[in-house]
Simulated assay, not measured.
Amino acid sequence: MSPAEGYLALARPHQGELEIKRSRFLTYLLPVTAEEEAREGIAAVRAEHPTARHHCTAFVVAARGSECPALAR
């Protein structure tokens, strides 16, 4: 899909887990419509796993139907 065609968005939350050498890697995907909503989701996941050693986060928020800035070249 080219940036001119738009981008795909999540329809619902998704969670995944992978274990490698006794280390657990958790994935949380959350559909959001605003930056504040994304930051609240990140805070909720951090609160759910306070002993986690690493938290890697990313989010992209764009108006529905607009070009996603992260995909623009």
Rank of each mutant, 00 (worst) to 15 (best):
A34L: 03
V60I: 01
L8A: 14
Q15G: 02
C68T: 06
A72F: 10
S66D: 11
L30W: 12
E37H: 04
C56P: 04
R53Y: 03
P3H: 03
S66L: 00
P13Q: 08
F25L: 15
A63T: 11
T33A: 15
G6M: 10
E35Q: 13
T57I: 15
A70D: 09
V60L: 01
A47P: 07
G65H: 07
C56Q: 14
T51G: 00
G41K: 10
H54L: 13
A9N: 00
G41M: 00
A47F: 07
L18F: 10
H49Q: 05
F25R: 07
E17P: 02
A9S: 14
A34C: 06
P69E: 08
I42K: 09
L29P: 11
A63C: 09
S2N: 14
A70T: 03
L8S: 07
H14Y: 12
A58H: 11
R12G: 13
R64Y: 04
L18P: 01
A58C: 10
H49K: 10
L26V: 00
L18A: 14
A70W: 00
H54I: 09
M1N: 05
E37Q: 15
P50K: 11
E67F: 02
A52T: 06
H14G: 14
H55W: 14
G65R: 03
R12N: 08
A47R: 07
